[in-house]
Simulated assay, not measured.
Amino acid sequence: MGDRLTFLKGFIKRPREVGSLVPSSRFLEQRICRVIDAGHTRTLVELGPGTGGTTEAVLAAMPADARLLAIDTNPAFVEQLRGIRDPRLLVAEGSAADLDTLLVENALPPPDIIFSGIPFSTMPEGVADGILQSAWAALAPGGRFTAYQFRDAVCHQGRRVMGEPLVECEWINIPPMHFYSWDKPERVGS
């Protein structure tokens, strides 16, 4: 219940940064793990982890030698995330637009997976573009960027930076959630 209350307080204080009144369903968490292939990934970044429900689901699915960097701007969420006791988890308070700096500060290589629950539909277009450009630039060749969203704003914004997305939906969530994924080519020009 504490996670839900912290999440609700976060939404009330920062509704443009927290995309929902309630955290993700367990069905959504399971879908995220499948979409990002958490069981076979070594370096992951989560943008906008909220209170950590998705973070914990991904940690449970990750290999023992993988690392997950969770980045949030909300100090209350960051404090709660730091309470998750898993040596594979690194937590950073900061902006997703500063991803390159946060990767260096945490001694991480380019991530194989970046996944995001931040609400792109509520942020200024320039900020959204900056985050998407930062994520795409930081992603390892052959890596994947996935945004799970209620609205399709990231689909249109992402096309400008990364091209056409793969689209999936998880209907067992309130409200239903769409997944927009972009796979970075192995080589430039691919």
Rank of each mutant, 00 (worst) to 15 (best):
I36Y: 05
D37V: 05
D37K: 07
H40P: 00
T41K: 15
L44C: 09
L44E: 00
G48P: 02
G50M: 11
G52K: 01
E56T: 14
M62T: 01
M62H: 00
A64Q: 14
D65W: 05
A66F: 05
R67K: 14
R67E: 12
L68K: 04
A70K: 08
D72T: 02
A76R: 12
A76I: 06
A76C: 07
V78M: 08
V78W: 05
Q80M: 13
L81K: 09
L81I: 06
R82P: 08
G83R: 09
I84V: 15
D86W: 12
R88Y: 07
L89T: 07
L89E: 09
L90V: 07
V91A: 09
V91W: 07
V91P: 10
G94V: 11
D98P: 10
D100W: 03
L103Y: 01
E105K: 13
E105P: 02
N106E: 03
L108W: 09
P111G: 08
I113K: 15
S116K: 08
F120K: 05
F120N: 06
E125C: 02
V127F: 10
A128F: 04
D129P: 03
D129F: 14
Q133C: 04
A138L: 10
G142K: 12
G143K: 11
R144D: 02
A147T: 00
Q149M: 04
A153C: 06
G158P: 11
M162N: 02
G163I: 09
L166G: 10
V167L: 06
C169H: 03
C169R: 10
W171E: 00
I172T: 12
I172D: 14
